[in-house]
Design a protein around this nucleic acid. Structure first.
Lengths: 232, 232
DNA sequence: TTGTCGGCCGATCGCCGACAA
DNA sequence: TTGTCGGCGATCGGCCGACAA
């Protein structure tokens, strides 16, 4: 999975350390994200935080939901629990290296839009914000009437999706029509979920999705749905 | 899962031992049905057959395919490998007890039909053989024009399916129309698969399915599709 | 600029009797 | 008796511009 697409799907709030950088591993924080309850009582020697070095990073995407996640391999920097051997004041910890996939962002453009009811209704298509159509999508021949093209986009699994991109209506607007509802149904998208379009360095168009936060009070989103992905 | 419905779905060729009856357990035969290869070389002491007593039987149905299977709990009758302690000549082994669910068959009627192309095509409904409609389905009021009724049938999971049963056409024939294609699509039925209707002792109508044999030369079926289930 | 709506057209679903095996 | 077919009417998917936020 392309790290650029991965970061575009994960959103600008997600930062990843670089290989060989130093980080803290928080066992309790990790345990809180486990599926089942993790009981530390039987192993009371677990320290609250463990200085580690990042050995490897695998950018992954769930096969069913397309949601992105990462596997990090961490190696403790000092002997177990011997915190004194580690320099807490060293800024290189945590700040040792951060990558949000935007190192060459001048070349990698991405855009995220939260789906409206009209986008998610199987009654029709997808309203493409002008910014997205003009900066991410392939150039449209505006001499045609109406201007239209077929666009191909690869998802996080490398699967290609085909959409009909048309510029029509009064006033004119960009729309995805044929192919869109197939995508919505197959990915089980609902109003509130987000879609990410990304133009890779090689010119390929990619598409990712970001599920709406479930649970209570999950994340405040800009209600305008204007989320240029990958920006701070 | 009702043993009567289970046997109707399994078909007349399937016989089950009764609880406490004596049977032979064939480890090699069992291994041949395992998903992966079972290697007996590391345990060469496994005898070719082991006399056992049937301790429990659970009638099951696969949650996805509706295919029926059973879990048997067997207890060896003698010390491991000491075959001499067992009376091979005793007819009670294997013949100790057989149940095919037809103990009170005079009350439990069932019928199986192999689906034709016309039945499985989502273009329409299901041609109900007269015998099935008249002996398994609820009585139809032939005074109406055309005679029709809604029938409810429980599948192996206890889920209820609704079908419109109508007697129409020239010449007259029994059909299932509304509700049938929903059932076919949900169960992913194909031409060649079989459907089983069963009238339980309490009068409830039940429906089961029997997938077509895959693989090479799998089972010769009566091409007429006439398979009164549960009969010898 | 773009979200929602009603109109409308074409495709598909599915009910029907005709006909024949 | 029942499997297959063509017809056809109802429903639905989905493309469209109008309109307003």
């Amino acid at each position: 999975l392309d790290p650029q697409l991965w970061h575009a799907c994960a959103g600008g709030m997600v930062q990843m350390p670089t290989i060989n950088s130093k980080v803290y591993y928080f066992p309790q924080g990790h345990a809180e994200h486990a599926c089942g309850h993790v009981n530390f009582r039987n192993c009371p020697k677990v320290p609250p935080l463990i200085p580690c070095k990042v050995v490897s990073i695998k950018y992954m995407a769930d096969l069913e939901s397309d949601e992105v996640y990462a596997k990090l391999k961490l190696v403790p920097l000092s002997g177990c629990g011997n915190d004194d051997a580690f320099d807490y004041e060293n800024d290189s910890v945590v700040a040792g290296g951060i990558s949000n996939g935007s190192d060459n962002q001048d070349k990698v453009l991405s855009f995220a839009k939260t789906l409206t009811q009209s986008d998610a209704n199987n009654g029709g298509g997808f309203s493409v914000p002008r910014y997205c159509a003009e900066t991410i999508f392939p150039r449209l021949d505006y001499a045609a009437d109406p201007p239209l093209q077929n666009i191909l986009a690869k998802d996080v699994h490398g699967e290609t999706w085909k959409f009909r991109h048309i510029y029509r209506g009064t006033p004119r607007r960009h729309l995805l029509t044929t192919g869109w509802s197939t995508f919505v149904n197959h990915k089980k998208l609902l109003a509130g979920d987000s879609i990410v379009f990304l133009r890779a360095e090689n010119g390929d168009l990619c598409v990712g999705i970001r599920r709406a936060k479930k649970g209570i009070g999950g994340g405040h989103e800009d209600p305008s749905g204007w989320n240029p992905a990958g920006e701070n």
